[in-house]
């Protein structure tokens, strides 16, 4: 650290020293938004699955000691013939049910009303109890499985699918698809950045046509387990600028 570095650090700290967020508002807003994010993870579950979840809720809550982590022996996908390896609807599952209930306007917010609601559904549809039990058996694994950690889908630096980013003034890029992402620039220029396995580098680097594609404008060096090929039309953008705009992660984590 030299003198300028030190002064810069001090100046940055001084500039924001008095800044204080509203922590209560921040917490409440984050919990609400975070809960919505969790719910979106289950958004792919279709209407039929929702009915299954509701049925699962009724059976789980209707168990002896309902609302606790003590599931009955009949709860679980393997219940029935053997019943020996049935996963349990533990407290984590019930927590998710709680989240689910609160997040869906159609669902009553208290357990007894939920019970009535789902029972009503069953009666309306003429489903015998055994059908709801089957639904529970089908649904409980999904209800209890660990949801995936949300990942940003962008190509930004950090935890991402692709180990490179590209940022150059006047250029815009789309989200990655598979192992590549396209970008467009001034004068209808376009480029496609493709992340490739390091084992293929010799083929791409040695071939006069760079992999047989005349649109290939540049091939990077190998970075640990990957390299990048750039294909497209520069249309006036200097290749050096494109290369300068690339950022490489140390490793391609696939």
């Amino acid at each position: 650290m030299n003198d300028f570095d030190t002064r810069l650090g001090d100046a940055l700290r001084d500039r924001v020293r008095g800044e204080q967020p509203d922590l209560r508002q921040l917490t409440e807003g984050s919990v609400r938004a975070g809960t919505r994010i969790k719910h979106r993870r289950t958004a792919g579950i279709g209407a039929g699955v929702l009915a299954g979840l509701a049925a699962a809720a009724v059976v789980a809550i209707g168990l002896p000691g309902g609302g606790t982590a003590d599931p009955g022996p009949e709860v679980g996908p393997a219940a029935g013939s053997s019943g020996s390896s049935a996963p349990t609807l533990d407290e984590e599952c019930l927590e998710r049910l709680d989240d689910f209930r609160v997040s869906h306007g159609k669902m009553p917010a208290d357990d007894s009303a939920l019970d009535d609601y789902v029972n009503g559904l069953g009666e309306q549809e003429g489903n015998p109890p055994s059908t709801r039990e089957d639904q529970l058996k089908a649904m409980s694994p999904r209800l209890c499985e660990e949801p995936p950690v949300e990942e940003d889908s962008s190509a930004s630096v950090g935890k991402q699918d692709l180990p490179i980013t590209f940022a150059l003034e006047g250029w815009n890029c789309d989200f990655p698809a598979d192992d590549k992402f396209p970008c467009s620039g001034p004068n209808d220029a376009w480029l496609s950045f493709v992340v490739r396995d390091a084992a293929d580098h010799d083929y791409w680097a040695d071939d006069a046509d760079k992999g047989g594609d005349p649109n290939t404008v540049w091939v990077s060096e190998v970075h640990d387990n990957y390299f990048v090929s750039v294909q497209g039309k520069l249309r006036g953008t200097p290749l050096d600028d494109v290369i300068e705009g690339l950022t490489f992660a140390p490793t391609w984590e696939r």
């Binding site: 967020p21 921040l26 807003g29 984050s30 975070g34 919505r36 994010i37």
Partner: peptide
Amino acid sequence: EDLTQATYAKTFAAW
């Protein structure tokens, strides 16, 4: 404020 809340929301979702 938006960035901080978005950060904490994602953090809470994976808490």
